[in-house]
Design a protein around this nucleic acid. Structure first.
Length: 801
DNA sequence: CATGGAAAAGAT
DNA sequence: ATCTTTTC
């Protein structure tokens, strides 16, 4: 961490987890056939040719040198006793259904821990557990949770031989002081280092949560997984692979540079392909550590604006990409290759395979409609043709209105034919001139079923409805559109919903009264801050070195639980957001959550509401004396984070200057003249950061145009909210946010819908399914062992605190 | 002819 | 809308 350290907005605020199932397909097969347990196995598809292609290898077989990328026969050579499990073929095509189902089971368990779950693939998911960490911290202060060594089994910390060393290291630096509003870090070291320590505590607490998550996954699905715990997605992902299987790894902030010091650049997600190679070539480097010796300007000159910034940040371990909640995939597709002699040369063959593919997607779309209350509106047909020596890939889209095999297959054939001037070779129009080597059909552009109903109704009566009712419609539709959540509820169980609302409101009003009697926030700082967390950590550190499975170690029994620690104090202690995102403090005791205010207004979709407010997911409240005013933007900032903030201004200024220069260069050239780089992969991450020029209000006066797009996101970062704390608010038990009393019903609506949807999905609630979508006997009833633990709907609205 | 199938996301 | 890249 030398001079190149430029800190951009809150790089350590979040606690992000990547959960990755260990050799997932193998585990699925082992679960289905327990006799395979303990044996070396590999999952293969199409075992006709050379034993089939291996798509998964369990650890017993890996120990014998078997790897992916081998054919079944080679695997047998390395490990004669290996069991090659064949993935089932349906319609002469590999059928991955059981793995998808198993993946859903796992994700359903994960989803119980946070709604901020993003499925990255069939066996991987990102979780943002920032909020869970905050809650647990509160529990630790309350004495309701004790961080014992057994909560960190199978847990590793990058840079330490043993997780206990990490804990020990932390506990030496951290104490809680009476009346202090935040973690007190002692000893030498600058503010930055103290901040790091604070962030490490979050990671440690996160690790204990992840341990429980993985335990739940194992208990309820039988599957084992590994996890990475860090402050962002890329690091979580990176670190997840470091200890496997059935282990988890946390990445302490200050050890990022240690990790990068010998890390091949290609290991970073997004740099594994041609682009990563290009970066290495152009910069003449191999390791991540070498990347950090380039300035932002250099990187932006060598690549483009966005890419340069991304690389620059990545070199510091910064990745600001949000965990975007998504359970269901955005597209459903299938494809099949027909290599070499297998290429499709006749229309009959083509028709046949299009029908096979169409059959599969229809099957999957039907199921998807029931599970996710949505219908695809578009089909994308992909096909590759052989033109003598060259393979030419094409994709064409066609609108999708009814989910019908014949129709889809026909449309697909149609669009393929239309693609080439001369499609047929012979006069009978039966032989294809350019044989087809790949066929694919994929469905996407999903629309919510309930949303569709609303739309039709609105269309039908558009002339008749008043402005008022239009507004109402939009409010109703403010649920996530892309996500699986928050659907179907209103139509499938209206009466219940209504009673929930009533109950919710009652509870909320009650709670609000309580709230007003509560001691004010300002008084909280007078209460005795306990040292329990410190003790817990210290003791845990000491014990961790010698613990064994099953040991029970009680710590902090001597620290009396402190009752008066409030959420606010916890927030402050964990200081989760950059101060320029904070609200002005108000005289009232309520904490302002502007995103809640926004969410009650008619807006686009719940999804985008979420996205734009995501940076405000946590909104702590901190007394004024901890703030300073930034000389650049005049925003109030945490003193402790001022230096980082100023660095950020500098970074943005630099990036803006680059951009202006780049634009003026562009204008002098003709648009058609594309530099050789143009063909390169341009990884565009962090649109929000890039557009942040508008945030530096001082800097970007000249180029306000960019602001139009980026403003919505950026203002969240840079503009302090003005409105603020509703007089009376109540904390939502679900998400921890403070809801103005008059908005409780709408807010509850959102959670209720989510929960209902989850129940409908994960339990076999036949009546609900039947009434919402046409009865379908094929409806899969996945059993959810968590049923017993599931909370009652009513409890969602239990009074906060 | 040979990992193959699948999905996301960005560029244009 | 189509093509490309990346990843598992």
């Amino acid at each position: 961490m030398s001079k190149t350290q430029i800190n951009v907005v809150n790089k350590h605020d979040r606690t992000v987890v990547l959960v990755d199932m260990d050799c997932f397909y193998c585990q699925v097969e082992e679960k289905l056939d327990p006799s395979l347990k303990g044996k070396p196995i590999a999952v293969v598809q199409y075992n006709a040719w050379r034993g089939g292609g291996i798509i998964a290898v369990n650890y017993a077989a890996r120990d014998r040198g078997v790897t992916r990328h081998m054919r079944g026969e080679e695997a047998k050579n390395h490990c004669p006793e290996i069991e090659l499990v064949k993935v089932p073929s349906v319609r002469e095509k590999a059928d991955l259904t059981k793995y998808r189902e198993a993946g859903k089971d796992v994700a359903s368990v994960l989803q119980r821990f946070t709604t901020l779950l993003e499925r990255a693939s069939v066996d991987e998911a990102y979780l943002d557990i920032t909020e869970n960490v905050r809650k647990r911290f509160k529990e630790m202060n309350d004495g309701t949770f004790v961080l014992t060594p057994d909560k960190l089994t199978n847990c590793f910390a990058v840079g330490y031989d043993h997780i206990g060393d990490f804990v020990q290291n932390l506990s030496k630096k951290v104490t809680f002081k009476k009346g202090a509003d935040k973690v007190n870090v002692e000893g030498g070291g600058d503010e930055q280092e103290k901040l790091f320590t604070k962030y490490d505590i979050k990671l440690l607490i996160g690790a204990s949560i992840v341990n429980e998550i993985r335990e739940a996954v194992k208990k309820e699905t039988g599957f084992e997984c590994s996890a990475g715990i860090a402050h962002n997605k890329i690091l979580a992902k990176l670190v997840c692979g470091m200890n496997k299987p059935n282990k988890q790894t946390v990445l302490p902030v200050k050890n990022v540079s240690l990790l990068f010091s010998d890390l091949p650049l290609q290991k970073i997600k997004g740099l594994g392909g041609k682009f990563g190679e290009d970066v290495c070539d152009k910069l003449k480097i191999k390791l991540m550590s070498e990347l950090s010796s380039f300035s932002l300007t250099e990187l932006q000159r060598t690549f483009d604006d966005k890419t340069g910034l991304w690389l620059f940040q990545m070199a510091q371990g910064i990745d600001l990409e949000a965990v975007t909640p998504r359970f269901a995939s955005k597209s459903i597709g299938c494809c099949k290759k027909f290599p070499g002699r297998n290429s499709i040369k006749g229309i009959a063959t083509l028709t046949h395979w299009l029908n096979e593919l169409a059959t599969e997607i229809v099957e999957r779309l039907d199921k998807d409609e029931i599970e996710n209350s949505r219908v695809a509106k578009q089909i994308v047909v992909s096909f590759t043709q052989k033109f003598s020596t060259e393979e030419v890939a094409s994709t064409r889209c066609v609108p999708l209105n009814d989910i019908d095999v014949e129709k889809i297959a026909h449309d697909a054939l149609d669009v393929i034919k239309k693609n080439t001037d001369v499609f047929f070779k012979n006069e009978q129009n039966t032989v294809i001139l350019n044989p087809i080597t790949l066929l694919g059909i994929s469905a996407g552009k999903f629309e919510d079923i309930n949303q569709q109903k609303r739309n039709t109704i609105r269309d039908l009566f558009s002339k008749a409805i008043t402005n008022e009712s239009t507004k109402k419609t939009e409010i109703d539709s403010s649920e996530p559109v892309n996500g699986p959540e928050a659907r179907k509820a209103a139509d499938s169980k209206p009466s219940s919903i209504k009673s929930f609302f009533t109950a919710a409101k009652d509870v909320a009003e009650e709670n609000n009264q309580k709230n007003e009697v509560d001691p004010s926030i300002d008084n909280e700082f007078d209460c005795n801050s306990n040292s329990s967390v410190d003790m817990l950590i210290t003791n845990a550190a000491a014990d961790l070195k010698t613990i064994h499975e099953g040991d029970t170690i009680t710590v902090a029994a001597d620290s009396p639980p402190v009752q008066d620690i409030t959420a606010t104090e916890v927030n402050d202690t964990m200081s989760t957001f950059d101060s320029n995102e904070r609200n002005e403090r108000t005289a009232s005791s309520s904490v302002a959550f502007p995103e809640n205010v926004e969410s009650q207004q008619p807006g686009p979709s719940g999804q985008s509401d979420y996205k734009s407010s995501y940076v405000e997911y946590l909104r702590p409240d901190i007394p004024d004396e901890f703030f300073e005013t930034c000389s650049q933007c005049h925003k109030k900032l945490l003193t402790v984070e001022m230096q980082s903030h100023l660095d950020m201004h500098l970074a943005f200024q630099l990036s803006e200057e680059q951009r202006i220069e780049f634009r003026s260069q562009l204008k002098t050239k003709t648009s058609s003249a594309s530099p050789p780089i143009a063909k390169k992969a341009k990884l565009d991450r962090n649109a929000n950061l890039n557009s942040s020029s508008s945030g530096g209000s001082k800097v970007s006066r000249t180029t306000d145009a960019t602001g139009a797009n980026g403003k919505g996101v950026l203002t969240k970062y840079f503009v302090a909210k003005k409105d603020e704390a509703p007089e009376s608010s109540v904390q939502c038990d679900e998400c921890g946010k403070f809801i103005p009393i008059e908005g409780v019903v709408e807010h509850s609506d959102y959670h209720t819908a989510k929960k209902l949807q989850m129940e409908i999905n994960s339990l076999n609630v036949a009546p609900l399914v039947g009434s919402a979508v046409g009865q379908n006997p094929k409806t899969k009833s996945r059993t959810d062992p968590s049923t017993a633990k599931k909370r009652s709907i009513a409890s969602f609205f239990k009074a906060a605190n």
